[in-house]
Design a protein around this nucleic acid. Sequence first.
DNA 1: TCTGGGGTCCTAGGACCC
DNA 2: TCTGGGGTCCTAGGACCC
Length: 420
Amino acid sequence: MIALVDCNNFYASCERLFNPSLNGKPIVVLSNNDGCVIARSNEAKDLGIKMGAPAFMIEDCVVKNNVAVFSSNYILYGSLSNRVMNVLKENSPAIEVYSIDEAFINLSGMKHHDLFEWGMKIKELVTNEVGIPISIGIASTKTLAKMANRYAKKERKQTGVYLAQENWQVEKILAYTKVEDIWGCGRQYTNKLNEQKIFTAAAFIQLNDDWVRKNLTVVGLRMLKELRGMPCIENDTMPAPKKCIQTARSFGKLISDKNELQEPIANYANSCAVKLRKQKSCTSSVHVFIHTNRHRMQDVQYFKSVIVSLEVPTNDSAEIIKAALKGLEIIFKPGYNFKKAGVLVIDITSENQIQYGLFDTVDREKSKKAMQVLDKVNMKFGKDTVKYAVQGFKKKWKLKQEKLSHCYTTNIKDVLKIKI
DNA sequence: TCTGGGGTCCTAGGACCC
DNA sequence: TCTGGGGTCCTAGGACCC
């Protein structure tokens, strides 16, 4: 059996944890640049605020209902996520951290009559030790565990745990779940299924394999088998190194000037290099893109990208920044209002499997040492303590974050003071 | 004024090889 | 008039996830 542990309204719950006056009140958390809604408390959901709604379009509702609005504070969320995951690790046989607020836990060694008890224990431990509310679904496959989790969250609010073990328990959630709420079923698949008059997971598992294979590819077939209780998605307790890494952001304001664009691009390139070094990989292709704001009808639009190849795979910041800026030279065109840019590193290989070039002029050993020093300093004194001149200091392009909460768990200045 | 960011996997089609 | 067959590799784009 497999359990899925999922934090309820995670970002909103994080904001509430250090600000208990928000209990019972509607909360929303906004994306980067305070652009759109990416998390809502239950109270905000009840007000009809939709996921992904642009911030400026919910303003009336926010004012009228006194909704608490926050910029996203990933340092806080990351730190609280670690706390939750640590409690899970200490009390589980094998855990796969699936995202910032979810983890799969393999319970195959556990006796069947202990499963529900185990779920209740985990729920209590996380509540007491961290304070973030969670839900737990337990079933024979990952897709069913996801479904059981959703059912627990909505229909088992007292316990927060649902075990889908006996046939009738599985059938209950299959009948309960609409196809669009199945893990792996997005808009396109939902449309195709609805056209066949298939609206619930219970109806979906009656479909014939060939039809599913033909219309929803092997991905759909895997989903179907998982729903029938046949595990097809492996447990992955050791995360594999990333196959591509990207850093991309919208700017806080529009940029038309090439020199001004160099700053964010250099920063994104550096951030990719740091991520590469963290997983001990190198890249041989740097992909750069820039584009205008497609929501501004009055602007002429321009989307362009280019891939710059490198002779020898590298994770040296200077080399990757240089390649990214070379890419910018190629794709930049004057006369446009640019809103967003990004750098992707693709063709990733392991650090210790590099094919050195015949005419390589770079001193690889020296570069490696320089990067180690750079990473060490920035790790100790905060990121960007040491950086390249081209990364700039002004950061006029940087994010808009007008409603940022404190870093309660990671910054000594922000730790709450308690009067006794 | 104002609409996120970072990933994975799969498929189709073209280039190329013998 | 007649113009193979089978295979691999690569890339772009689609669909999905949180």
